[in-house]
């Protein structure tokens, strides 16, 4: 599946390294783009392309926080609550976010739209509190800013 659909992209990834195994992380990103998370099918495809055993690919998926072995919401809301952000209101922001979405960090809304997570420092402490929405930075996040993000992404089609 991947191989047909993303043939050129996969070729370009493999060409960057003298050793195929180095393509495991980039290919797993491709799997997540295609299937929403690292599915068994996707893991086996990565294993086949790189010549690494499926067990080892699964181990890689388990090790890195940005890889998921289960379905997550269509939008990933990651609020940093590490020390520098927490010195400027991150814990309160997390509490607000959980109330607004009616879920706890680590959970997904019942409609499958949002997954809420708390994360360690994302390199935006000078604009705390900070978060990432689908891996794009949103900084100086107030409860109002958070609510607006949720509303924008709650429109149909988003």
């Amino acid at each position: 599946m991947l191989r047909e659909k993303y043939e050129q992209e996969i070729e370009a990834i493999l060409a960057r390294y003298p050793v195929k195994r180095s393509a495991v992380l980039p290919l797993l990103y491709l799997v997540q783009r295609e299937y929403g998370y690292c599915t068994e099918e996707g893991i086996r495809e990565v294993a086949e392309i790189t010549g690494v055993s499926p067990t080892e690919v699964r181990e890689v998926v388990g090790f890195y926080t940005l890889f998921y072995d289960h379905p997550i919401g269509r939008h990933l809301l990651q609020i940093c609550d590490d020390l520098p952000c927490a010195l400027r209101g991150a814990d309160e922001l997390v509490a607000h976010a959980a109330r607004r979405l009616g879920i706890r960090p680590g959970e997904t809304t019942p409609d499958g739209r949002f997954t809420l997570e708390t994360v360690m420092c994302i390199g935006a402490c000078h604009r705390a509190p900070a978060m990432q929405v689908d891996l794009e930075f949103v900084e100086h996040v107030t409860p109002e800013v958070f609510d607006r993000i949720v509303e924008d992404l709650s429109r149909d089609g988003a």
Binding site: V19, S22, T65, F67
Partner: peptide, 24 residues
């Protein structure tokens, strides 16, 4: 080369492992 979320991969030998497609 994009990492995938792991502070330990800043340690240079873990980083090299990660770049080789392994756990950090």
């Amino acid at each position: 080369h994009l990492g995938a979320g792991a502070y330990i991969c800043g340690e240079e030998t873990a980083l090299l492992e990660s770049l080789e497609g392994k756990i950090g």
